[in-house]
């Protein structure tokens, strides 16, 4: 188990002891005029440190939109996103980039690894932007690859890896910085059942052993079963939110 490294505090002090994440009446509108579409219609959400949350819901219900906002990759149209007491929607581009750099890990549905770049280089990329020295970068990248069981594949490029292996490299890249929160948008969407369960075991282990808060979008109830809490989206709203195992 690794202690949380203390980042060179890019964040101003927050509002005090609150939830890790709070969404308050968040909306997101795409397009303009007749093409206007409201993907989120007022989402309220709280996530506490150490949670493992699965986000479910029909296609087009706004899951990815919400994840992108939570990952500071996108800005809400209205409403507030408070991360550790900090109003993200009021931050500058650079401040949000620093939030991503020091607190967030994001796993995309489409992997999004750098082509023709070895697994090791892909994984150490976030550390490069943190200005870590070479030796530390390599050590931590190897450690992350170890955690996803790909230590012996570090010299391989994405084209030489299977889909499951690529997804695990992507997860290694997301956790190499020891993020506070790991956001994964359909991490098993492109994988067969066996690989999917392996990825889930990995996420559970990260959540349990390292205390990383995990937020994961999935369509598959089998995968959602690994989470401690399940949030259902419907038409851009939170439709249901319950602890796993409880009745709907």
């Amino acid at each position: 188990m690794n202690a949380m490294p203390s980042p060179p505090a890019p964040l101003p002090p927050g509002e005090g002891s609150e939830s890790l994440i709070q969404l308050r009446a968040v909306t997101k509108t795409y397009g303009q005029g007749p093409a206007e579409f409201q993907a989120l219609r007022g989402v309220d959400l709280r996530i506490e440190p150490g949670e493992f949350v699965a986000v479910m819901g029909p296609s087009g219900s706004g899951k990815s939109t919400a994840m992108n906002i939570l990952g500071c990759l996108d800005n809400p149209t209205s409403g507030a996103y408070v991360f550790r007491g900090l109003h993200v929607e009021q931050l500058s581009r650079n401040q949000r980039a620093l939030l991503r750099r020091y607190y967030l890990g994001f796993v995309f549905q489409g992997f999004n690894l750098l082509a023709r770049t070895t697994a090791l280089e892909n994984v150490e990329l976030p550390l490069l932007y943190r200005g870590e020295p070479r030796a530390a970068r390599h050590a931590r990248a190897r450690e992350a690859l170890d955690a996803v069981g790909l230590r012996q594949w570090e010299k391989h490029t994405p084209a030489e890896l299977s889909g499951g292996q690529q997804q695990r490299v992507a997860i290694a890249r997301a956790i190499v910085t020891h993020p506070t929160i790991l956001l994964a948008d359909e991490p098993t969407g492109n994988l067969d059942t066996q690989r999917s369960h392996e990825i889930m075991d990995l996420l559970v282990a990260l959540n349990r052993d390292r205390g990383i808060t995990v937020l994961m979008v999935t369509h598959e109830p089998d995968m959602a079963r690994y989470a401690k809490r399940i949030i259902h989206f419907l038409d851009g709203r939170v439709d249901a939110d319950h602890r796993n195992g409880e009745k709907h």
């Binding site: 990952g71 990759l73 581009r93 650079n94 980039a97 620093l98 939030l99 991503r100 750099r101 020091y102 967030l104 994001f106 995309f108 999004n112 690894l113 750098l114 082509a115 990329l125 976030p126 932007y129 943190r130 890249r173």
Partner: peptide, 19 residues
């Protein structure tokens, strides 16, 4: 196209625009 995606990846993992 490839480079735009690459830039997207870099930005997503916390690179600043000027970097």
């Amino acid at each position: 196209t490839e480079r735009t995606r690459e830039i997207g990846i870099r930005l997503a993992i916390g690179a600043l625009e000027r970097e």
